[in-house]
Write a protein that binds this DNA or RNA. Structure first.
Lengths: 204, 204
DNA sequence: CGAATTGGATACGACAACGTATCGGATGCA
DNA sequence: TGCATCCGATACGTTGTCGTATCCAATTCG
């Protein structure tokens, strides 16, 4: 077994990698993967292309790392939201599904990036495998939280949790999308608040 | 009022425009707007860039025309599916919402293009206005069909038709997306078949 | 049938984005 | 403090894409 001894990344190096990644996520959200040039990203990060190619081998390389972080952050948010055991079902679920739509920075950036990653995954087989695995982790996390919460309240859902979660994701993303395209036509959370309780078997 | 006398487009010209547009929609679906070069499109259409610039002023010009056709075709499909008055509610609705996901050519292309248009609209204010108007027409068409069908059966929906339609769109697109990313994880129509009847107030 | 017009092909110059090879300042270490 | 290494900046040449200016064939029309 040839375990390539990872040449330890210095703190300095890690810092510039982080800055580049952060810049990239903002530029990608603004212009899309193809629309973003390496120079755009470097400009925003305050570096030159030299720095970029010293840290990453290509834009694709960047995308892989970025999508990984993107999903990891989401799983974390879901997990944290699910921990509030004192709250009632509806509160917990609201928090959990708010997490789907809420990045501490900006919902818009988050949704656009998610969509970009998805398109990228549809087009590139390798990216697809990675993205599929990440999506599955997100769903699994949601299933766990929903099951726990629902069980605590002794509810019985009219549909399997997995399908409920898939529906919830679709609704959250769909309503965000509709709101971004037609800002004043749909109140924040209206769609989810109307539909999800029905799918939980609650009259609410 | 200066009504610029439209210089009538010849049949030949219209034919090449059509071929270019068809090629563009296929290339856009494969590589995205930014990823597609004018030359890519011309190659696929069997023309040179000379022909392109003789017919369109830019790639953006193309996108506008294309998104218009895209939505028009969808409205048509919905309208046709809604006309089958002999069928039962569930059949009609299945057909109608299948129309959401079904282009005679390819569902995949249709979904990807819809997503590309949406991203484009989020980024470009002018494109947004056009796309928002088109989305509204699609929804209105769906609301009409659903109302008619539901009324014919004397059902009462637990939520307003408009919200039902928005949810149905989100679910259809979400499930298609999930299926494209993780092909074997969700059966075709499973999500919609499970959720929509509940939202219609049917036990099914 | 011949002249005028239309419509696409060809050929060109400009430029933007890429990736690399090299340089020089900062940083870590003895 | 002096040396070695790291890492980002600079400065290329290369390529891909654009948009236009011009040419030539096909079509239209008198």
């Amino acid at each position: 077994m040839t375990t390539t001894a990872e040449p330890r990344i210095s703190a300095r190096r890690q810092a510039t990698r982080d800055r580049v990644l952060e810049a990239a996520s903002s530029v990608f959200a603004e212009r899309g993967f193809h629309g973003a040039t390496v120079e755009d990203i470097c400009d925003r990060a305050g570096f030159t292309r030299g720095a970029f190619y010293s840290n990453f081998s290509s834009k694709d390389d960047l995308v892989v790392e970025l999508s990984r972080r993107h999903s990891e952050a989401l799983v974390d948010r879901i997990r944290r939201a699910g921990k509030r055991e004192h709250a009632g079902t509806d509160e917990v679920l609201r928090d959990v599904f708010a997490a789907l739509a809420d990045d501490s920075r900006s919902k818009e950036r988050w949704l656009v990036l998610t969509t970009e990653f998805t398109l990228h995954a549809i087009r590139d087989p390798e990216a697809r495998r990675a993205w599929a695995a990440q999506q599955r982790r997100v769903r699994d996390e949601l299933v766990t939280v929903v099951d726990e919460t629902v069980a605590r309240q002794g509810l019985t859902m009219p549909i399997p949790t997995e399908l409920f979660v898939r529906a919830a994701i679709a609704l959250a993303q769909g309503s965000m999308t509709q709101r971004l395209v037609e800002p004043r036509s749909l109140a924040v959370g209206e769609l989810e608040r109307t539909v999800l309780p029905i799918l939980l078997g609650v009259d609410a």
